[in-house]
């Protein structure tokens, strides 16, 4: 039982991070029908930006709770702002010129941007090839015992934070004009344009929203895992993308569901005697779900208008 509780909490935490990243994939796919392979690297940039901020403010060296909280907010702010900028630049200069080109081109450009970000950050002058430790900070409470299981306070904080940002995202999508624009644009570019939606602006905003969520995920992982490196986006991106597809790409609730599912199943398997089969299982699950429900768990395959 305690095994189950602690693994479930770990799985939910990991799943929350996946969900935050998966939302970015799903949002962009919805609007542009583009698999944005550079998204995982935006997440990496978010984590590194938070790392830079934490180092600059000497986080972890001070014991003052107020200073700590302030620095933590600053980390979030810097990470989000830098990812928003990056997201905008990528969309404006790498994807927008290709709006009318075959989709394969945007795919290749996305991969090019991804390589570019990874190799730039691997340069010794920029960040370097090796991982670096995130400055550490003792939280006031140690591990919490819950029905015999150990739960870390960070895990609960991250779970709460993830939930908060998911709700913010939901609010934006469902209750703002921008969200309406995003939904309209996902439905059909030309129809949206006819209804007076500025599709270019909405596409940029979608990228900004996705990048912002990725930045949040980056900060959380930095805090949680105490380690950042320029290639951290590759694996996380691949998993989050898988999660988005499992949930139904283009469907936002699906992205969250897929992320949580992915996190839980990975954690249960990694924490069992079959830990070696973790990734094989995750991808087999992906293919299986696509076979049974081609549109993903919550997605639907709209019949093509003929």
């Amino acid at each position: 039982m305690d095994w189950f509780i602690s693994q479930t909490i770990s799985g939910l935490t990991l799943g929350g991070v996946y969900a935050l990243i998966a939302l970015g994939y799903s949002l962009v796919y919805g609007v542009l029908k583009l698999i944005n392979f550079a998204h995982g690297d935006v997440y990496m940039v978010g984590a590194i930006a938070a790392f830079g901020t934490a180092c600059a403010f000497g986080w972890g060296q001070t014991a003052d709770e107020y200073v700590r909280s302030g620095v933590m907010l600053a980390m979030l702010a810097v990470a989000v702002v830098s990812c928003l900028g990056l997201g905008y630049v990528i969309e404006r200069f790498a994807y927008r010129p290709l709006r009318r080109a075959p989709r394969l081109n945007s795919l290749i450009t996305a991969i090019g941007v991804s390589f570019l970000l990874e190799s730039i950050f691997q340069l010794p002058g920029v960040f370097g090839a090796s991982p670096r430790g995130f400055p550490q900070c003792e939280l006031p409470l140690g591990p919490i015992r819950l029905a015999g299981a150990t739960v870390r306070l960070e895990q609960l904080l991250i779970l709460g934070g993830t939930l908060f940002f998911l709700l913010v995202c939901r609010y934006i999508i469902l209750h703002t004009r921008t969200g309406l624009g995003i939904r309209a644009t996902s439905f059909h570019h030309d129809y949206a344009r006819l209804m007076g939606v500025n599709v270019d602006r909405i596409t940029s905003l979608t990228f900004l929203l996705g990048s912002g969520l990725a930045a949040v995920a980056g900060v959380f992982v930095g805090l949680y895992q105490h380690q950042v490196d320029p290639l951290m986006g590759v694996n996380a991106g691949l998993k989050a993308f898988t999660a988005a597809v499992v949930g139904g790409i283009g469907n936002l609730a699906g992205a969250v569901l897929g992320g949580i599912l992915m996190g839980l199943s990975e954690t249960y398997i990694a924490g069992s005697a079959f830990s070696a089969f973790r990734d094989a299982f995750a991808f087999a699950l992906l293919i299986l779900i696509l076979l049974v429900r081609p549109g993903g768990l919550l997605g639907s395959v709209a019949p093509e208008k003929v």
Partner: peptide, 14 residues
């Protein structure tokens, strides 16, 4: 685990 992982709670718990 795999060297590309960044999260080890499950393994450590186990």
């Amino acid at each position: 685990y795999k060297k590309t992982d960044s999260e080890y709670n499950a393994q450590v718990n186990q």
